[in-house]
């Protein structure tokens, strides 16, 4: 639709799109704004938008009440670890599926995706028992492994689709040019796949960061990530909007900032590599 459009039409589009965009974003904006209000102003009638007494005290109180830094570190370790581990395991698998396909490749891929459909709750107790047995309950390692396994099918799937996009002739050219398998992977395949790998890792990071079933049920205090940090504010006595907002902002800020900075890779990643 690369056609000249009247300025008027463009202005209407702009207005409409911005209005809808802001509407969708509003809950997040409102949370961030509220986090800088005093508790009284947070529930003022009528609601206050920008003209209130900005304060940082909620952040200080939240930090004091629950140790934000510890939860943040746990989230980084668990989400980061599961992503790196997952990509390391998925890379060779996706490579062989894309470049040495067999008759069963497609079936294996669909089977992998279908394991994601197994309801976690159906197997919660067995995993719980296994974790107790292996002393993995409330540990970084245990959660890292579980989140890696949860996201592994998606990671394999995405890497596979990215590898599939690399034209076969280029790899044949590398072979004709005398590249060994190692050099082919090192000099040709990897550089071409880096954007795809980055997108995949980003998506896996977000999914792991936000995962709330296993992280809530398999941790207690030591390894609890930000999902647990915020869940502690759902109990009735925590119902102070400004503090809830401050805690929420702290929980989502890292991933929000990361997401916005890497928008281009992310947009690609968010489509799960399934749509060009």
């Amino acid at each position: 639709m690369a056609r000249a459009v009247t300025t008027q039409r463009k202005l209407i589009n702009t207005g409409l799109a911005w209005a809808i965009g802001l509407l969708i974003f509003f809950p997040i904006l409102w949370t961030i704004l509220t986090s800088f209000k005093s508790e009284g102003q947070a529930i003022a009638d009528p609601p206050l938008f920008l003209f209130f007494d900005w304060t940082l005290e909620n952040y200080a109180i939240v930090q004091e009440r629950s140790d934000y830094g510890k939860y943040l570190m746990n989230s980084i370790i668990i989400a980061g670890g599961s992503t790196v581990l997952g990509v390391l395991i998925a890379l060779p698998a996706a490579w062989s599926m894309a470049f040495v396909p067999s008759r069963r490749t497609k079936d294996i891929l669909l089977w992998m995706l279908s394991t994601k459909m197994l309801p976690a709750v159906g197997v919660l107790y067995p995993i719980y028992l296994i974790f107790i047995e292996l002393k993995l309950l409330d540990s970084h390692l245990g959660l890292t492994i579980v989140l890696m396994l949860i996201n592994l099918p998606i990671i394999v799937w995405m890497l596979y689709t990215y590898f599939k996009e690399i034209p076969g002739e280029i790899l044949e050219a590398a072979r004709m040019d005398g590249a060994s398998l190692k050099n082919e992977i090192l000099y040709v395949l990897t550089p071409m796949a880096v954007p795809g790998i980055a997108s995949t890792m980003l998506l896996s990071l977000i999914l792991a960061w936000n995962e709330a079933f296993w992280t809530l049920n398999l941790t207690a205090a030591k390894a609890a990530p930000l999902t647990a940090f915020i869940a502690s504010y759902s109990s009735p006595e925590g119902l102070f909007y400004a503090k809830l907002s401050a805690a929420s902002t702290m929980a989502i800020a890292p991933i929000l900032i990361l997401g916005w900075f890497s928008q281009k890779q992310l947009v690609r990643g968010l489509t799960f590599g399934a749509v060009k």
Binding site: I170, M176, G178
Partner: peptide, 17 residues
């Protein structure tokens, strides 16, 4: 392929982007 001492020009050129 590499040991045959042949060079090939592909339809899509197959340049390394």
């Amino acid at each position: 392929p590499a040991q045959r001492e042949l060079a090939m020009v592909f339809q899509s050129y197959a340049l390394y982007p």
